[in-house]
């Protein structure tokens, strides 16, 4: 991102160890996909040496949204569905902060769907991680917007009755979306590379991680786990790479230019495979940060004169 010189911050020469980013011991269930994202984000913070005091993880409510507690940075564990507006507010006048948003399929795609759509359009410099396990876990097994048709839950004991929403097609349909990627929790190296690419992109980077809930959706990804040809690995020099040895594990690969929005949409709509990698990136999308940071460097004296002038306009 463009560095904003607004606050007189000393450059940080302090070196941080991996443990500097680890907060409370995670209370997620063993086998939960959330652990993979947490490991990747902590590693990213370490690799980038992000100052913990200038890193903010914002979440909503749900299993995934406990994420900030397990980081040793600033965190905001707020309201169900409302992580996006908070994160945008945090970033608006503090461009010096590194802001992550961690959300779940209920939090992002149901109760917070309106904010999700507009956050993608605002395209502020946020790294967004959607932990999508196709189910409400914390409230014990209710249908989520991404629950597959026919999948049994406590709210639909005979199976979900409406086809699921595709977070990828939604994200790719929003004007000014600038980064859309997908990864799977059982490929930790790919999870890391995806989150890293997302962090490095200036704008709202939207990463969906497919993962299971060990209690309520334990088997939903058995097929692609057992048969890697069900994963479509998108390759491109501008995309998300993997080291060659790991790449060999993905027999089904295609070249996809992440600037090709039409092709990205076509891939996202496929129901026979799970696309993996960077679907779309636009480095020229408008960043709302450029508007929200307006006037940040204004000296107090200049501000005072402007306020006096504003009052004077009402003098009779």
């Amino acid at each position: 991102m463009q560095p904003f010189k607004i606050l007189d911050l000393e450059p940080h020469e302090q070196h941080h160890d991996p443990k500097d980013y680890a907060g409370a011991l995670p209370r997620w269930c063993p086998g939960c996909g959330d652990h993979s994202a947490l490991n990747a984000v902590q590693k990213l913070c370490y690799d980038k040496q992000l100052p913990p005091e200038r890193t903010v993880v914002v979440s909503g409510i749900g299993c995934s949204s406990r994420f900030p507690h397990y980081m040793n940075t600033y965190g905001f564990h707020g309201l169900h569905g409302r992580a996006f507006p908070v994160a945008c507010g945090v970033k608006s006048r503090r461009p010096d902060l590194h802001v992550f948003v961690v959300t779940g399929d209920g939090d992002c795609c149901a109760i917070g769907a309106g904010h999700w759509i507009h956050a993608l359009r605002y395209n502020m410099d946020l790294t967004v991680i959607l932990l999508d396990n196709n189910v409400y876990g914390l409230t014990k097994n209710q249908t989520s917007p991404t629950t597959r048709l026919g999948e049994h839950t406590n709210t639909h004991p005979r199976g979900a009755v409406v086809p699921p929403l595709s977070p990828l097609t939604v994200a790719l349909g929003i004007t000014n979306t600038s980064f859309v990627a997908q990864t799977v929790d059982w490929q930790p190296a790919h999870v890391y590379n995806t989150i890293r690419a997302a962090y490095e992109h200036r704008g709202t980077s939207f990463v969906r991680i497919l993962q299971r809930c060990p209690h309520f959706s334990a088997h939903i990804f058995d097929a692609p786990r057992e048969d890697p040809s069900l994963l479509l690995f998108m390759e491109h020099e501008q995309g998300i790479s993997l080291e060659p040895a790991k790449l060999q594990k993905f027999p089904n690969r295609m070249t996809h230019d992440p600037q090709n929005l039409d092709e990205a949409r076509a891939i996202a709509e496929r129901e026979d495979i799970y696309p993996l990698g960077l679907l779309y990136r636009n480095e020229n999308a408008v960043c709302y940060d450029d508007f929200t940071s307006r006037g940040l460097g204004m000296p107090q004296a200049e501000r005072q004169v402007a306020i006096r002038t504003a009052i004077d306009k009402f003098v009779i």
């Binding site: 409302r82 507006p85 994160a87 507010g89 970033k91 006048r93 503090r94 904010h115």
Partner: peptide, 18 residues
């Protein structure tokens, strides 16, 4: 903001950040 909830959420985020 996109709605009243987001309007206060954004303000809360700003305030939280100082």
């Amino acid at each position: 903001a996109e709605d009243e909830i987001a309007a206060i959420g954004f303000a809360v985020g700003c305030s939280y950040a100082g």
